[in-house]
Design a protein around this nucleic acid. Structure first.
Lengths: 205, 205
DNA sequence: TCCGTTGACATACGTCTCGTATGTTCCCAT
DNA sequence: ATGGGAACATACGAGACGTATGTCAACGGA
């Protein structure tokens, strides 16, 4: 057995365990932030729940804000994947955009998304429109709208502005649904009204 | 001079001074929350800037969250007044609704509104759609849309849902404008796109 | 006129939390 | 085998919040 193999085994094992610990910290943080809120979540309890101490946390994430950023990045990745899947399943670009928006609204039913991404995140990390994930999501919407405009499906309109407003309307609908006593019923009303308003962008045929 | 007059003078003066101190605390909190953010604002510095101590604060507002609620109530009142003025100056209901929305977007240029109402407020007090001021604002929008629907100006659509989506789109536009390097230019693009999208609600004539 | 009570604060204290500074252990390179 | 660095653990100090207690002016009743 060569020494290189041994070396690789050692480093790989070390890195593997470190990555596992990192994941456990993020998972514990997700649960704590979602259930208690960012401000009320204690780093001591959080790390203890993951079987570690604050030392690991500050070594890997810098500070509490860095941990929240990592949690949000993970959540954002999961949301992006689901949005892309919803869009890919649609027969054309416009219905893909609508499916994506409706999927976004549904996601806000998840308490983790609601509390971490919609309430605490903006207060701690600032305006969400500056987050990497949001920028990427917006870029996709802009690309879709550009294609729709080139195809003459939608009216001539400021593409970026329209993309942002669509996202914002979906976000508001999401918050409304999340706060409702009967989310299912409100979800239908919200998605229907969203479609109606979005169709304001469609070119008259 | 009757004893009653003396009594009333005493109580009046006491209440007057207490109310003044309350206003000074709210004003100091507005400045501190807007410039440093809710979490970073220290109650000691805050009250010292108002010439008082934390005792006055806890006596009058219960806790830090109560102080933020009072600040938000004051901001909300000022915003409602400006929105009502914008609506009243318009020639008809639809343009009143548009004027109101545009006025709302412009208000987000105010750092106090942006930081306190849009970022920290939701994190501390929860979903804004449950705040009294928002509920009142929404009720006005719903009334306007109901009238427009009765007059046949807008399509048949879920009134409450449409009102919420319009408000949400305006809010998003506001955040976009607030984060832009050149707010003036973005403001025009945002308002124009907002009008285009809102016109999706108008009935074909 | 005198005393008990209440409202409006000030002061002092205890507890919690965050961030940093300082070890400690394990693994790789030489 | 020995130095060095990564990945943590531990110990410490600094604020900040909320509460419990104290103080003073004003009001009400005897």
């Amino acid at each position: 057995m060569s020494t290189e193999k041994i070396k690789r085994d050692g480093t790989a094992r070390r890195a593997e365990r470190a990555a596992a610990n990192r994941d456990r910290l993020i998972a514990a943080a997700r649960a704590a932030f979602a259930s208690q809120g960012y401000a009320a979540a204690s780093m001591d309890e959080l790390t203890a729940a993951a079987g570690l101490t604050r030392g690991a946390l500050y070594h890997g994430f810098g500070d509490k804000k860095g941990l929240l950023a990592a949690v949000i990045a993970q959540l954002d990745g999961e949301m992006s994947a689901r949005l892309a899947a919803a869009r890919a399943a649609a027969p054309d670009a416009w219905s893909g955009l609508m499916a994506e928006s409706v999927a976004y609204i549904r996601m806000a039913l998840d308490p983790e998304v609601q509390r971490i991404m919609l309430l605490d995140g903006p207060a701690v990390l600032g305006n969400p429109s500056t987050w990497p994930g949001e920028q990427a999501c917006l870029a996709v919407t802009i690309a879709t709208l550009s294609q729709l405009h080139a195809d003459g499906v939608i009216k001539p309109v400021d593409i970026e502005a329209a993309a942002r407003l669509l996202n914002g309307a979906a976000l508001t609908a999401a918050l409304w649904v999340a706060a409702a006593e009967e989310p299912a019923a409100v979800l239908d009303r919200a998605t229907l009204a969203f479609r109606t308003m979005a169709e304001g962008l469609l070119a008259p045929r």
